[in-house]
C-alpha cells in the first residue's frame, strides 16, 4: 500500500453540511426579495445593493489580511456577502453611496471583525451597520422613495411609509388617519414605501419557506416573533382602533425581514429550541412596544439587537431537556 492508513476517532463520515451551504442557502432564499426590490425600486436598489455587498466583502478581506494578518481570508464562506445583502435590504434605495460604505465598514469592522470574525460577534453585523446609520444620518435613513421609480436614484420622489402613518395616527389619536394605509394586498406584495428589501412580505415568506424546507433554520424564531406581534397588536387594535390592525402591523416595515432573516442569524440567536422561543417572543414584545410607544416608528432592529445582547444569558438558562430527565413509569 502506497500511503499510510489514516487514524482518527469516530465518526468517520460527515453529513456534508457546510458553512458555505448554509450561507449561500440564505442568500438564495433572499433572491425573491431581491427581485421584488429591483421591480419596485429599479436602478436605485441595484446601486445600493451592489455597493453594500462589494463594500462588505472588501472590508472583510482588507481587515483579515492587513489588520488581523490572518493567512486565510474568509470571504469565500459567504457570510460577508450575506451581511452585505442584509445591510442593503435595510437601507432606503435613495441612500448616497458614501453613507452605504460607512455602513458597511461599521457592520463588518465594528459589528463582526473586532470580535474575531465569523461566529464570534455578539450582535448581528448588518443591524449594527443599519442602526449606526439610522442614528448618524436620521434624515437620509428615514426618507423612503415611493415604489415604481425605475430609473431614479438619489432624486426619487419620497413619501411617508405605512409605519409613519401608524405613528401619526397614534400621535393624532385619530383612527381615520389609518385610512391612508395601502390595502393589505398591496402591502403583502410590497407596493409601498420602505427600505428596499423589506417591502415585499410575500417574497420574504417564500424565502422563509425555502430555508425551512432546506433545514437551514428551524421554525421557532420566525413563528414566535410573528405570532407574538400578531397577538399583541391585535389586542391593542381591539382596545383602541387608533392602533393599526394586526395584519397591517405584520406586513409593514422591517418586521418580516427581521423575523425571517435578521433574528434567525445563527451567530447571535440562542442555541436551544426553548431559548429560541423565549428570544422570539421577547423580540415580538419589544417590537410592538417600540412601534407603539417609542420615538421611532420602527422597532424591529432595536428589538433584535437588544435580544442579541440577552442571547448568552438565554443560552445559560434555557437548557434542552436532557434525555431521561423525567422518568416515566
Amino acid at each position: 500500500m502506497a500511503n499510510k492508513l489514516i487514524v482518527s476517532l469516530s465518526p468517520h463520515v460527515h453529513g456534508h453540511d457546510s458553512v458555505q451551504r448554509n450561507m449561500y442557502g440564505v442568500c438564495l432564499a433572499l433572491v425573491p426579495a431581491l427581485i421584488a426590490s429591483l421591480v419596485f425600486f429599479g436602478v436605485g436598489a441595484l446601486i445600493v445593493l451592489a455597493t453594500s455587498v462589494l463594500a462588505c466583502v472588501f472590508f472583510e478581506w482588507a481587515i483579515t489580511k492587513y489588520i488581523l494578518r490572518r493567512d486565510k481570508v474568509t470571504i469565500g464562506d459567504g457570510s460577508a456577502i450575506l451581511t452585505g445583502i442584509l445591510l442593503g435590504f435595510n437601507l432606503p434605495s435613495n441612500l448616497p453611496i458614501w453613507i452605504i460604505i460607512i455602513g458597511a465598514l461599521v457592520a463588518i469592522g465594528i459589528g463582526k471583525m473586532t470580535f474575531g470574525g465569523l461566529g464570534c460577534n455578539p450582535f448581528n453585523p448588518a443591524l449594527v451597520g443599519r442602526v449606526f446609520l439610522l442614528i448618524s444620518f436620521p434624515v437620509q435613513m428615514t426618507t423612503w422613495p415611493v415604489t415604481g421609480q425605475m430609473t431614479t436614484y438619489l432624486d426619487g420622489e419620497t413619501a411617508a411609509t405605512p409605519l409613519a402613518v401608524m405613528k401619526e395616527a397614534i400621535k393624532a389619536n385619530d383612527p381615520s388617519v389609518l385610512e391612508k394605509l395601502p390595502d393589505s394586498l398591496d402591502m403583502l406584495i410590497g407596493q409601498m414605501g420602505g427600505s428596499l428589501g423589506e417591502v415585499s412580505a410575500l417574497a420574504l415568506l417564500i424565502g422563509l419557506v425555502y430555508m425551512l424546507v432546506r433545514k437551514i433554520i428551524t421554525w421557532h424564531i420566525p413563528v414566535s416573533i410573528l405570532l407574538t406581534v400578531f397577538v399583541l397588536s391585535g389586542l391593542l387594535h381591539l382596545y383602541n382602533p387608533v392602533y393599526a390592525s394586526p395584519v397591517a402591523v405584520l406586513l409593514s416595515g422591517g418586521l418580516m425581514l427581521g423575523a425571517c432573516f435578521m433574528a434567525t442569524d445563527y451567530v447571535t440567536s440562542p442555541m436551544t429550541a426553548k431559548g429560541q422561543l423565549v428570544y422570539g417572543v421577547a423580540i415580538g414584545v419589544l417590537t410592538v412596544v417600540i412601534r407603539t410607544f417609542g420615538a421611532y416608528p420602527e422597532g424591529m432592529s432595536f428589538a433584535i439587537l437588544i435580544m442579541n445582547g440577552f442571547t448568552p444569558l438565554i443560552n445559560t438558562y434555557c437548557k434542552p431537556k436532557r434525555f431521561g430527565e423525567v422518568i416515566k413509569k
Binding site: 458553512v19 448554509n22 464562506d77 457570510s79 465569523l118 461566529g119 445563527y266 440567536s269 429560541q276
Partner: peptide
C-alpha cells in the same frame, strides 16, 4: 475546520 457559527444543529 471552520469557526463555530453557532447554528445549533
Amino acid at each position: 475546520i471552520q469557526p463555530c457559527i453557532r447554528c445549533a444543529k
